[in-house]
Nucleic acid binder design. Structure first.
Lengths: 230, 230
DNA sequence: ACAAAAGTGTTCAGCGTACACCCATGC
DNA sequence: GCATGGGTGTACGCTGAACACTTTTGT
């Protein structure tokens, strides 16, 4: 038994699709494997569970090791159990997706298991190891559904963001145009955003107001049976 | 190693919440365990995966062994991975729920592992083994959400059913009253039901028309981007 | 001063909701 | 003939969708 299998549960792993939003496009964080199996191929960050570790704990540990990030939005995608998904023996993997505001974090570029770590645009994905493309597809499908029914889009932006940024995010994820006025009316009407007295100075033209998501109000609304719908 | 652990994957199991609808109430099929661990306790039908078996295959196998039923609606609930959920060693279980029209099937009452098999009303559940109550709660939550967003309620009724039966089903699952005229208008307006030229003769008073779910039309509507909403 | 992006209101159609009476049947 | 449950239509308010011009600011 190779040393890296010590203390791990050999047939249960977790793999994580890390979504980021940058330059008006949805990106995914992949790493290039330094070790066999699938040495040299791009893959989703993932790994085996340790003894006594919960699956979500493992996912967070692996995310931290890969991206240097903790305290992020994580959502389960499901179990992947194809008989031959892992070449050497049978491994069940639990897929997650994470939402990250990319440039909040310094990437861990390389290490023992990693030749390279890189963000890829959805339309420029490389070939992925094992069934990772499949996991990614399901994760994306779940994300698209999720953003319409839960206020999770904000996780992909900075704490402070403008309405044009938010709308752009939705347009990219949903792959369709939204009407500016209707979008603003709806999202503001939910009272989930706090308008700040600051403007976004990075903008080339007219500066837009910054907003932030109001967790407190959201909790209160949830208790009253509110459901987010876009 | 006891003989029943031969050929199985010892740390992965599946457990199934079987929902049935009878006498205007939602019921759940449980069995009383004939063997340790948890001998004498009520539990969800479940068991370990076999080598080379997909999780859903295992769930269907177990359902058939428990209820005598094949070819039914199955839906994944999620992975349950608490460290101490199974007393002897760590077992990951994948929960499912099944929807069944109860009296279509003869129950397998007892066997090597089963003292008794019985339908329980939701409000008369016995204490359950391990974390099975938790699995049941999550399954119920998912079912309540599901019936509002997918046409799955029919799975709990006979192939031919009346609109009052369907409405009653929804009222029980959602635990609230629905307006008769609005319910009919909405459900008929979707064109998912075929009205038959038969009436329900079992009724004590005025006989109601029988309908059946039109799979064909549903498929076509789905392709056009239709989404079921109640 | 002009180009580019931010910001703002109104109208209309369709849908969800509330609501009351007649009909068929078994007893 | 009466009690029980089946079956039917309309009016109103809200919400989603379509749509165009003014304001700000950097160059």
């Amino acid at each position: 038994m190779p040393h890296w299998l010590k203390g791990v549960i050999k047939n249960v792993s977790t793999d994580c699709v890390i979504f980021g939003f940058e330059n008006s496009s949805l990106e995914i964080l992949l790493y290039k494997r330094a070790q066999n199996p699938s040495k040299g191929k791009w893959a989703l960050p993932g790994g085996f569970l340790k003894q006594g570790e919960l699956i979500e704990e493992a996912a967070r540990r692996i995310l931290k090791d890969t991206t240097g990030v903790s305290d992020i939005y994580l959502e389960a995608v499901g179990v992947f159990d194809d008989l031959d998904r892992f070449p050497s023996w049978r491994v069940f993997t639990i897929g997650y997706y994470a939402l990250v505001s990319p440039h909040n974090y310094k990437l861990i570029i390389s290490g023992t298991y990693t030749i390279e770590t890189k963000w890829f645009r959805l339309d420029e994905l490389p070939e992925l190891a094992w069934d990772h493309k499949h996991i990614l597809d399901i994760a994306l499908q779940k994300l698209r559904y999720r953003v319409l029914h839960q206020p999770v889009g904000f996780e992909l932006l900075n704490k402070k963001f403008t309405l044009p940024q938010l709308q752009n995010l939705y347009e990219v994820i949903l792959a369709r145009q939204l009407d500016k006025r209707n979008f603003r009316k709806k999202i503001i009407g939910m009272n989930l955003l706090k308008k700040l007295n600051e403007k976004d100075s990075n903008n080339k033209r007219r500066a837009a107001y910054l907003y932030k998501f109001d967790e407190e109000t959201y909790r209160k609304l949830l208790e009253r049976g509110f459901t987010f719908e876009l």
